[in-house]
Each structure stands twice: as structure tokens, then as C-alpha cells.
Design a protein around this nucleic acid. Structure first.
Lengths: 232, 232
DNA sequence: ATTATCGTTTGATATTTATCAAGCATCCAA
DNA sequence: TTGGATGCTTGATAAATATCAAACGATAAT
């Protein structure tokens, strides 16, 4: 494993404050692997063998039922999945696939659980991380239950613009059909929703989003920290 | 605070394995209060002052946006809310109201955070609890995104029957309009969905549910541990 | 016992969302 | 350069879901 990877992972809140020796234990047992696009890394229902860390590339988390499939999240560097399953030694509730060539660090779940039992700083960091994940999921539920699909799209764009530093134009970082699935709508309806947003000063050409009248969009989106702010 | 309450709370997974002295610290700082129905106990957006434990009665967690409101969960003895906000010292993402006369134990969030820093057994229990909550929320998201409202209702009934020990008849424990909101539908459509379920061998008279042909209902519901089993 | 209130049900209608089919655009490999 | 393949868009239609209005029924307060 490259030293630069190790150093990068160490900066994550999850590993930042843990004991040097215990971090070493995790790193010694770790695997680094590069995967081509469209590889299924984990499958829902299977036991969680590893805590995955995305060092490079993009991973999609998705879930299925009765022939349907939905995108639950997109994980980019330096994101991890799926901590809850690793800690509880429980089956994964989601599957994961690479969307592009991706490099991942795999920490054996058993090692993570062992270090969790030993290193109380790590345990505390895990608490904070899980609380964060839980709150994110609650926000997502509110988003789904309280808003229509076009309102969800509007808020997604508002948020992405903030993440792009407030730039008038920015690029969508996922395929539209995956964005649609994430937002809980079909690709067809995303296409139509985008058209509707033109009257709110939004134009989307390919992956390029331009927001000409942010006030109009905000007036539709009505964003709220308790749903839309990942930090809140 | 009554000794019987203390003993009961001590049996919760969250408090079971913690240090006696630290548990004492929590109990010493605790308040016990009985509330009439329809009292708003916490408000979304407000800081989390207490970890609430429902000892008697029923509490509804709900969220609002732009004039809309949705039921997020129902908490009964011995359930707690909202651990993630308490631990992160973050604002509550949901509001809570009593649905009936209810007795609650309130642990000051600051105490909980302090003991969490001190008692590693408590910290580990919090990890398990948060992981559980997170997974529950993910399952709920899958339920919402992958199923239609009638499928959600069907699965809810299947689950409630299991919780009723498999009895052919059992009672709904919440008002229908709240059940509707929890399931992400209107009260009117819940009423119609119940009618539709008659052809699947389900009759609901008032709060009394009777399932005459479980096979037919199961065939519609297609329950799946990765969505419907709270233990999984 | 009576009235008032509130939850539930039903019907009519509107809106939202999905599905199906076709054409268009883009990208990549032969 | 040229086919595919795949993703995106558009139109037509169907299904799911929400809204509005009214009636009904249970419950609680007077």
C-alpha cells in the first residue's frame, strides 16, 4: 500500500484521532485494489467482509426489490462504505458498483471491529460518523416524503451550485439516469423536469448546468438546512 | 425517579453494559415527566437538550417542510429519541409530540455526551444503537423508493401480524391518518388501499385487521428481510 | 341526551409520475 | 469512418397519487 494513500486515509475524521499502533493494525491488514468500471463490489444481503474506502474513482450504492432498482448514494474520494454493516457484522443493505475505473482500500471488517473494541478514540470517531450517516438518511427521507420530484431536483441543483463554489455554471457529476434514480424519478421525467426548470432560469445542456436567476430557483426549491445542509 | 423506572431503563441495550457509577451519573441528572396528549416535546431545528426515553405512552416523531408534515416514526416504551442529535450536539431533525398521556425520562444531552466520553462500554453500545438506527432508516428509504403505497401498506400489515405473534386478527396501534402519513400517502388513499386489499384477503374494521388469506397478501407484499426485518 | 368536533370514508376531479414507443445524440470500437 | 450500443429526449398514454367536497361515524364535552 502506498504511503500517500495511507497518509490520505489518516486525515479522514474516522481515522484522524486513533492510536498510531491501531491504525497500523488496520493498514497492515488492508488491501488496495483497482477495479474497472461496472464491477459489483458488494452485493446486498451478503455479509460485510470489508470496510471500503474510495481513494480514486466513483462508486454507486444501489438497492433492489422485486425487479426494481434505485440509486441510494454516490461515493467519491475519500468516502467509505458501509460502516454500519461492518460494525454490526450484519449483511449489507445495499450493493455497490464502480461507475468508472476506481481504486479502493479494503479494510477487513473483522479488523475494524477488533480495533473498534480496543481503541476508544476510534470508537468515538465511529459514533460521530454513524450519527452523521443516520442524520443524512433522515434528511433524505424528509426530502422524499415532503417534496415533489421537481422540488427535489431544484434543491439538488441549488446544493450542487453551492458545492461548486457558487459558480453560475457547473457540471453534473453523474449520468442523468442515475441522478433520476437517486432523486426517485424516471429518466424521462427528469428530462421533462429539466425543461420545466427553464422557466426558473435553469438551463442544462448535456452535463452543464447554468443557473441564470438563482432567486427564481430558490423560490421554487425553498431549501432548508434541516434537509439540505449535509453539515447541519 | 422511581426505582422500577431505573431498573427498566437499565435493561435497554444502550445502558445494559455500562459502568454502574456512570449509569448513576445519568440517573442523578435525569428528569421524569408525565405529559398530556398532543404536547410538542421537541421541535425540529432546536438544539437537542435531552435524550428522551419513553417509559409509558406513545410519542410521534414528525417533520415538516413548506406547510407539509409527515410522520417519521412512532416511539413506544422503551424507546428513545433522538440519540444522533444528542451525541452530535446538533439540532433535532424531527419534532416529537405525545399522542396520549405519556411518561418520559429525560437525560440531559450534556450528561450523555460526558458519560459517552468516559465510559467505553456505553460508547460501544451507542455505536450499536446508531448503526441500528441508520440501517432502519436505509430500509425505510428502500421501502419508499422501491414500492408503491399499496405495497408498503401490505408489507406493514405483514410485519404487524408477525409482531402480533402471527394472530389472524390484530389491532392497528395508530390512527389511520398517522399510519397513512408514515407510509407516505394521504388518509384518503389509505382508505382506498385498504379496500383494494380486500381482494387479497384483508379486512379492516375500525382498528381491527383480519388477514384471511396470508398467502395472497404475501404474494402482493413480497417482504424481504433487507427491507422489512428490523433485526436483520 | 345532545351537540360539536374530529377522524374516516366515498366520490369526483386534478395532478403527478410511470410506462411504452420512437427518434435523436453521443461515444467508442472495429 | 462507420456501425452499434447506449443514453437522452419527446410524445402519447396509463397508472398512481393528491386534492377537494361532502357525508358519515365515533367520541368527547356540555
Amino acid at each position: 500500500m502506498k504511503v500517500s494513500d495511507t497518509a490520505e486515509i489518516r486525515t479522514l475524521p474516522l481515522f484522524r484521532d486513533m492510536d498510531d499502533a491501531q491504525f497500523e493494525v488496520l493498514i497492515r491488514g488492508a488491501y488496495v485494489q483497482t477495479f474497472p468500471p461496472q464491477i459489483e463490489l458488494i452485493t446486498e444481503g451478503e455479509p460485510s467482509d470489508f470496510l471500503h474506502i474510495v481513494v480514486e474513482g466513483t462508486v454507486e450504492l444501489f438497492a433492489t426489490w422485486n425487479g426494481h432498482q434505485t440509486t441510494m448514494a454516490t461515493v467519491r474520494p475519500l468516502g467509505t462504505f458501509i460502516l454500519a454493516a461492518t460494525i454490526k457484522d450484519a449483511p449489507n443493505l445495499m450493493s455497490a458498483r464502480t461507475l468508472e475505473r476506481s481504486r479502493l482500500v479494503l479494510l477487513p471488517s473483522e479488523d475494524v471491529r477488533n480495533v473498534f473494541e480496543t481503541d476508544s478514540a476510534f470508537a468515538r470517531a465511529i459514533v460521530v460518523e454513524l450519527a452523521q450517516c443516520y442524520r443524512m438518511s433522515i434528511k433524505n427521507t424528509k426530502n422524499l416524503k415532503l417534496r415533489s420530484s421537481i422540488e427535489r431536483l431544484a434543491n439538488h441543483l441549488v446544493r450542487k451550485q453551492i458545492e461548486a463554489g457558487g459558480a453560475k455554471s457547473f457540471e453534473l457529476d453523474v449520468e442523468k439516469r442515475r441522478l433520476a434514480s437517486y432523486l426517485g424519478m424516471t429518466a424521462e421525467n427528469l428530462s421533462r423536469a429539466i425543461k420545466t426548470l427553464q422557466s426558473y432560469g435553469v438551463t442544462i445542456d448535456g452535463a452543464m448546468v447554468t443557473i441564470t436567476t438563482p432567486e427564481a430557483l430558490l423560490n421554487l426549491a425553498k431549501p432548508m438546512p434541516l434537509i439540505d445542509d449535509p453539515e447541519h
